[in-house]
């Protein structure tokens, strides 16, 4: 306030005052919108620490005492740690395999010209967007035939077709961003194409691998449809555990809040890790195609 008055008293132009006001109003508006968008999730986090009796109270008890009772309940009764572990295994393996299987294709799309390139790119895009729910029953039949129902490998196998095209699509732009001249000079110095890739391009792609990997991990962690149909006990992942709290009309609010936080918070943390690339990743990945 003092500084603003100073601007006035030192007789600065009206334009400057106008700019200042504009920035304050716009900032305030943006922050209010952000808080509105985050409020439901923040509410979930705060309420997950409330006692079961207070959670369903109406009107909401904003100042009731906090407890970790709900968390100890989901870890003890529902054994959510087991599902956390399953989710981590499936998402982790999917991520690593997708990246490994996609990189050479991404390189091919970024660096070579070849017959049918556009059509193969279309094919990958078409696969990436193919609706999961359409293929769930055939997947179930196939998984039964080859004995992959309710296994981690079964889930991973059926996650790959969606994540590999995504990885190709993302990594291609990262490969394109590495100047061709760097590889060319390595080739001139006597490297093979493979060696040039391994020594020059691959190290520069680490941010690209990381970013793409985090996006794949988030997708696989959050995936519900395939996991819901293909797992029952041994390989069951987090998203399918909602059933536990939804038993025939009696809806258990308290553990639900805690389970919601446990299953989303690691992903939010992952997302914040690639904050800088969320922008470049989504826009560059989408635009250059």
């Amino acid at each position: 306030m003092g500084r603003r008055l100073q601007y006035f008293s030192s007789n600065r132009t009206l334009l400057q005052w106008h700019r200042r006001l504009d920035s304050i109003v716009a900032s305030l508006a943006v922050w209010i919108i952000l808080i509105l968008f985050l409020a439901p999730y923040l509410y979930l986090i705060v309420w997950s620490f409330k006692r079961p009796g207070d959670i369903q109270a109406y009107p909401p008890r904003f100042l009731s005492p906090l407890t970790v009772e709900n968390y100890s309940q989901i870890f003890a009764d529902v054994n959510i740690a087991f599902f956390l572990k399953n989710s981590a295994i499936v998402a982790g393996v999917t991520t690593v395999l997708s990246l490994l299987l996609a990189i050479s294709a991404a390189y091919s799309f970024a660096r070579f010209r070849f017959l049918g390139k556009d059509w193969l790119a279309y094919l990958f895009i078409a696969i990436m967007v193919a609706p999961l729910i359409s293929l769930v029953y055939p997947f179930l039949v196939v998984a039964n035939q080859i004995g992959l129902t309710d296994t981690h490998m079964g889930l991973v196998l059926f996650y790959l077709p969606w994540n590999i095209p995504f990885a190709v699509w993302m990594l291609r732009t990262f490969v394109s961003d590495v100047p061709q001249e760097l590889e060319d000079s390595a080739l001139v110095d006597g490297c093979t194409r493979m060696g040039a890739f391994a020594r020059i391009t691959a190290p520069l792609l680490i941010p690209g691998f990381f970013t793409t990997g985090v996006f794949i991990f988030i997708g696989a962690w959050n995936e519900f449809v395939i996991a819901f149909f293909l797992t029952s006990t041994k390989a069951r992942t987090l998203p399918t555990t909602i059933d536990f709290f939804l038993t025939y009309g009696s809806f258990q609010f308290a553990p639900m809040f805690a389970a919601g936080v446990v299953s989303t918070l690691p992903i939010v943390a992952c997302g914040l890790l690639v904050r800088r690339y969320y922008l470049t990743g989504t826009t560059a990945g989408a635009l250059k195609g």
Partner: peptide, 16 residues
């Protein structure tokens, strides 16, 4: 902050 809602598990969002 705006990134956060887009990262949440859709099933849990529905449940929430």
């Amino acid at each position: 902050g705006f990134m956060i809602p887009t990262l949440l598990m859709p099933v849990m969002v529905g449940m929430m």
